[in-house]
Amino acid sequence: MSPDSMLGILSWKLPDYRFRIEFWAVLGCIVLFTALMELIRRGRLKERYSLLWFLTAGALLLFTARRDWLENLAQLVGVYYPPTALFLLLVFFMLLILMHFSMEISRLLADKHTLVQNLGILEARVRALERTGSSPDLEVKNESGRDNSVDT
């Protein structure tokens, strides 16, 4: 049983076998573009985070539409079957996106630490203020330079 006959009724709608990968790639790109546009429109995705996604979809679309470019790319990287180069491209962009995510997570984590630290310190100072009425129990160091002599 060949894959074509398995597809049955669906297969008559599909383009010629040689261009089927392009067909799916273009379809995928259109779906991706629509989803991205919709997410941005609803405010579910920030523009700054969508840039890499648009680049991915754009590159995929470009190399699908221009078969000759894809063939050149395949030749350049030593891939015999050009559509495989499309996957290579996709993997490359996926790696970029993942790395971007890791960077953002690290940044957010560092920001969170700073925020929580400051929140804790501020809360302690507010508590001290509430208790004493006037001055917090951690006096601020005078800016003119401390007396460095200490009694041991």
Binding site: K112, H113, V116, Q117, L119, G120, I121, E123, A124, L138
Partner: peptide
């Protein structure tokens, strides 16, 4: 003693 309560667990370093 002076106590600071961090609202989240940040780990020993922070």
């Amino acid at each position: 003693a002076y106590s600071v309560h961090l609202p989240l667990n940040l780990g020993i370093g922070s």
